[in-house]
């Protein structure tokens, strides 16, 4: 069972991300968080194998969330995907610099997201 945390404030986008990731070949359990704070609350409850986050959210932004995860020993190994409308090179650079493993621009291609997720999940289980 692979556990995925989706952090996204738009309900439609969240539901679409969840729907896309439900179709990985592996069995997945998806947790949806509608804000950065909610994500912070979810994190200690389960061991996630993948986090997918938006950038612009009402409380803390996705970059701050990435920074938090990467600076925390408990979470630093969780693969991270940013999916955002912020398509500027600088944001992309920032996200990757902070340690995100992939950066997808909305609208994303579901097959690409699934492929990215599959790769990251495989890497992670291989490493252990």
């Amino acid at each position: 069972m692979q556990r995925i945390l989706i952090v996204e404030d738009s309900a439609t986008m969240r539901s679409l991300l969840a729907s896309t990731l439900e179709d990985l070949d592996a069995a997945v359990k998806i947790t949806e968080a509608s804000s950065g704070f909610e994500a912070l609350r979810c994190l200690p409850r389960e061991e996630y194998d993948l986090v997918v986050t938006d950038i612009n959210m009402p409380d803390i932004n996705g970059l701050e969330l990435v920074s938090f995860l990467k600076n925390n020993d408990a979470y630093s190994k969780i693969p991270l995907v940013i999916v955002s409308t912020e398509g500027s090179d600088r944001d992309r650079e920032k996200g990757l610099e902070l340690g995100a493993d992939a950066y997808l621009v909305k609208p994303f291609d579901p097959e690409v997201l699934r492929q990215v997720a599959r790769d990251l999940l495989a890497d992670e289980s291989g490493a252990e």
């Binding site: 932004n61 920074s67 938090f68 600076n71």
Partner: peptide, 15 residues
């Protein structure tokens, strides 16, 4: 201006 979370001294229980 911004709210940056980071792990606390006891990262499992604090933020």
């Amino acid at each position: 201006v911004s709210t940056l979370p980071s792990p606390g001294d006891a990262p499992e229980s604090q933020i």
